[in-house]
Design a protein around this nucleic acid. Sequence first.
DNA 1: CCGCGAACCTAGTCGTTCTAGTTACAAGTG
DNA 2: CACTTGTAACTAGAACGACTAGGTTCGCGG
Lengths: 156, 156
Amino acid sequence: MTAAEQVTSPHAAEVLRELRAYRAAEEAMRRRTRDSMKMGENDLAALRFLLRAQGQGRVVTPGMLSDHLGMKSASVTVMLDRLTKSGHLTRGAHPTDRRSIAVSATPGSDDEVRATLGEMHRRMMGVASHLDQRGAEIVRRFLLDLATAADEVATA
Amino acid sequence: MTAAEQVTSPHAAEVLRELRAYRAAEEAMRRRTRDSMKMGENDLAALRFLLRAQGQGRVVTPGMLSDHLGMKSASVTVMLDRLTKSGHLTRGAHPTDRRSIAVSATPGSDDEVRATLGEMHRRMMGVASHLDQRGAEIVRRFLLDLATAADEVATA
DNA sequence: CCGCGAACCTAGTCGTTCTAGTTACAAGTG
DNA sequence: CACTTGTAACTAGAACGACTAGGTTCGCGG
């Protein structure tokens, strides 16, 4: 707005506008998914985390979900109750630590999430595949710089 | 994972990984800001919307916030109560429609938000400015395609 | 074998949003 | 001008989700 900001190149503003538009679109998509599954934000994030870990054969405990989602362990317990009652996951015995618990997604939940987020992932992969090697490098660098910028804000 | 997805170029996966990293970083940044201001997500979004509109001399009504944030008007009322009590905004008379209300941010609120999100915006602008014309076009196209993909998922 | 810490759960509270219903005003019609 | 319909915001009350505090069970080191 001020004269000092006029030094920025005109196409930079275009890029940021497009970035905002993408973020809005993705958020709206995520919201539609949550609404159609009648879930909260954390519930869906937990399922995604769970499915990804399961795909790699890793065991997931409530504590890991607590760390990953930034929730207190008590809140995780209630969330697991909720998702268990809705049939999205089950609690089982932990293979090595009898204090702990192994959380696993039900097959139905797996299908449900893959049907929506998997579709999204495929499309995104399609978009990214249209980049040639140089384009990919440019985009990658751009995203990396943005992430660095975000990390540095309000941290110093 | 399956053989069918092996057709995607290897650098595409890299790009998507970077994209996820950026989204996580931005979300974390936003969360830090919200926590430091002790506000909810919508509260902060409302303030940003308000400040941007105010910068353009536009009048903001509760109804506009309701539309923009996807909240019910009743929820907006409560949110305005909250933000008024915390000293971030004031309610005033609407210039033309006496049914309506003009919401405006307090100077203190303006400073507070600019100090954090303005900093973020400057940094993002800096990153985007490092792109040359061709790079900007590539990134812009990429983001536009992603937004289109998100829009089309679960809509058909 | 005993105490300490870790992992999870239970109970109670608070904050945020929603639905339903109300009041005040605007706009169009005879 | 009187009347009807629609719009803007608010009030009341319930639902939902996350947090704090306080158990319970179990692994581990002395």
